[in-house]
């Protein structure tokens, strides 16, 4: 008697493979097509009157790295924009994860019911759009009705002046001669960005931290570790990968932040997302140059992801 041969696809019907392949193709096309169009446009040339034409020119890339007048003169304006894009996204991602870690850790120590309440609250806060969040913080940080007013009315401004810290804030561009000023500043931009992605950071960290074996923490305690030492020597190393992953994901997400930067960033310290929009839809109307900036931003994000992947693999190999 001949035994029936098991199906190679683990018992699935043959048509499933074809459907899966078709779906894969559609998804790939949807992902690749927009990027391919942007890539092609980035090599195009602008036509006066808000249009562009096909070309194979590096002009837009040259303009990005060394300026329009090169080689007569060199400008690093767009490299600076790229720098600020990375700085804002990097700082905000790290700050969000740094705050989310203790918050999530303490949440996982609570009863299941309290955990659920917090998670539902955080998930519902995700429904707030970037515009809504920015509007709230705009009012909160505005010079006439927000925190600066609170500083002045409560005497905090006077106290800052008396202890000499007010001058430091002025040096940082966070105070006028009379009162503190949060708009526009790196502080306000990074703060709002961090706030924006904080719920994401918690949700990204929650699965890893809630799955951490409580016996490991108890074992550390029985071996003389105080609660903070347990976190430092057991929890943090065990959560290293999720922490890095969350920070990276948020960093890449924040590279594309637009509304926050347009409202809170100093015009001289704005990011590529602003200039890309200006090129494509705004005042300058230069779609090929906007596309070149978008490609560079995308490649930079990809470069960071690849570098992190390599680093984590190296760390794993070393471990």
């Amino acid at each position: 008697m001949t035994a029936a041969r098991p199906q190679a696809s683990g018992g699935r019907r043959p048509g499933f493979g074809a459907v899966q392949a078709l779906l894969g193709l559609v998804l790939a096309a949807l992902c690749v097509a927009p990027f391919a169009i942007v890539l092609v446009v980035s090599f195009g040339q602008v036509v006066e009157g808000a249009s562009w034409r096909w070309a194979l020119s590096l002009e837009n890339y040259l303009r990005f790295f060394v300026g329009l007048e090169w080689p007569a003169s060199t400008s690093f304006l767009y490299l600076q924009k790229l720098w600020w894009t990375l700085v804002y996204a990097g700082l905000a991602a790290v700050i969000a994860v740094a705050f989310a870690f203790p918050f999530t850790w303490l949440t996982t120590r609570q009863s299941r019911r309290i955990q659920t309440v917090w998670l539902v609250f955080l998930l519902s806060s995700l429904s707030l759009s970037e515009v809504f969040v920015v509007m709230g913080w705009d009012v909160l940080l505005s010079n006439r009705s927000g925190l600066p007013m609170v500083f002045r009315e409560t005497g905090l401004t006077d106290w800052l002046q008396s202890v000499g810290w007010f001058d430091t804030l002025r040096d940082w561009g966070m105070a006028t001669p009379r009162n503190v000023r949060f708009k526009t500043s790196v502080f306000a931009t990074v703060l709002t960005m961090s706030y924006l992605v904080f719920p994401y950071a918690v949700i990204l960290l929650y699965p890893a931290l809630s799955r951490l074996d409580p016996a490991m923490l108890e074992a550390a305690r029985t071996m003389g570790a105080r609660p903070f030492t347990v976190i430092r020597t057991v929890v943090l190393p065990a959560a290293r990968l999720p922490l890095t992953g969350a920070a990276l994901l948020l960093f890449v997400y924040l590279l594309g932040a637009y509304v926050v930067v347009s409202v809170f960033a100093d015009p001289a310290r704005q990011t590529l997302t602003i200039t890309i929009y200006e090129s494509v839809r705004g005042a300058t109307l230069n779609a090929p140059f906007g596309a070149a900036q978008a490609v560079i931003l995308l490649l930079t994000a990809g470069g960071f992801l690849l570098a992190s992947l390599r680093l984590s693999r190296l760390a794993e190999a070393k471990a």
Binding site: D213, A215, M216, E218, A219, V234, P237, A238, A319
Partner: peptide
């Protein structure tokens, strides 16, 4: 401990 609770990162 029952599951030994060894630290996998060490």
């Amino acid at each position: 401990f029952q599951n030994f609770a060894l630290f996998p990162h060490l």
